[in-house]
Design a protein around this nucleic acid. Structure first.
Lengths: 222, 222
DNA sequence: TGAATAGTGTCTCTTAGACATTATTGT
DNA sequence: ACAATAATGTCTAAGAGACACTATTCA
């Protein structure tokens, strides 16, 4: 029996102009050389401590940065998804602010809405990642990873609204941020430059780096 | 480089005496021959259409039955978890009523609390599956798969309470069952034999076989 | 008839969303 | 002062939990 091909792929998501985008790279090698696809690569059993480690390594090699949030999404498999043969791809998803990606000219950002023409089963993989992000965002702190280290609450609300695709009541949003208790105001600094009352700047609390805070009620509980 | 070992394992969970139990099988072959472990096996690339298919096949081969609910849990990997070498195991979890398992004398049911001495990383895998079940049960219809095809609402509430490990308000529980809208009373049949008012019998609605219904508020929202 | 549990009506208290008001900046 | 948005106070309405009451069976 032919051996099973074992790879990792990364769905790197970010917000650009308040729309979710996915990061794609031009493939250097066959199959699908020249096409844009998710960053991915083989698991290196001599080098990687586990598949998560492989995903972090591939992301670093292909983009030059480390993502604070990197979570296993799911494993995709079958004989047809990769022309090289029966394959198993363990997929991770990462969330970063757009600014981190802008320095990387090799990365192409495409809106997740209306994606098509991706090689492998990458369209389905991206759809799964976006569904997971939306689902988790309804009751958790996940979207903060789409923000830069310092952000305002009005901006964070915009991020939530962009991810969820619907408006959120301002008072409720701020109440829930209090309940989640995973952001803290940074003393002394304020947003500036606009002709209105400046917003306080917040940051993710140390204890929530790499982790999430959960609600037991959705943001828009309806 | 040595090839990566690609396997599937199944965490088969059920309720016995209102406690969660996991199904283990005595291993026929090395490694760990003679020890009790999760049902598992190699992915057969000539035969399996994907890894989910492999998990269903392994479960059928080892237990003789098909589980209505079989969901991918996560993928576990690394050089140390399997003495044969660097391995990737895609793990699925299944929920069944105890009665299905009772006919299978080869299966050993152990309580998930206080499990120890399992081979591979199976203890960690079981803990992950139980955590997933508990988490999903707080806002979904998942626990119905631990019931037989016909069940009463008081029994279903007991099942939820056993899984969640805390009591649920009766009125709220029945209201949420109405909101979830995934069970329906079966006309004409009732539970019988007890010296009290008989309970109506319910069943999972057809459209929810293999799927879940979700709430946007937890059962015990506190 | 009494014991036991199923099933439902209803009250209260919490909390979400709507709306209004105050606060603080730049022009 | 005025425009603009931040931040918060407060009212109302929806929903959760508590409690009590009715319903239906067997002994």
């Amino acid at each position: 029996m032919t051996p099973i091909i074992c790879t990792v792929d990364i769905v790197l998501l970010t917000l650009r102009s308040n729309k979710l985008h996915v990061a794609l790279l031009k493939r250097e090698q066959e199959p699908f050389a020249g096409m844009f696809a998710l960053p991915g690569g083989y698991v290196h059993s001599e080098q990687d401590r586990d598949v998560q480690d492989a995903a972090a390594r591939v992301l670093l090699e292909k983009t030059g940065f480390v993502s604070p949030y990197l979570e296993q999404l799911a494993t995709f498999s079958g004989p047809a998804r990769d022309p090289r043969g029966w394959s198993v791809s363990v997929v991770y998803y990462a969330l970063v602010p757009e600014e981190i990606i802008l320095n990387q000219t090799s990365i192409k950002l495409l809106p997740v809405e209306g994606l098509k023409g991706l090689p492998f089963d990458h369209q389905h993989v991206v759809e799964t990642a976006v569904a997971r992000l939306r689902s988790k965002s309804t009751y958790s702190s996940l979207p903060v990873y789409l923000c830069e280290p310092l952000f305002t609450l009005p901006h964070l609300q915009e991020v939530y609204e962009a991810v969820l695709g619907e408006p959120i009541n301002k008072v409720s949003f701020r109440r829930k941020m209090k309940v989640l208790a995973m952001v803290e105001a940074v003393d002394g600094v304020m947003e500036a430059g606009k002709a209105n009352r400046p917003a306080k700047l917040y940051r993710l609390k140390k204890e929530f780096k790499n982790s999430l805070s959960l609600l037991n009620r959705a943001f828009n509980a309806g």
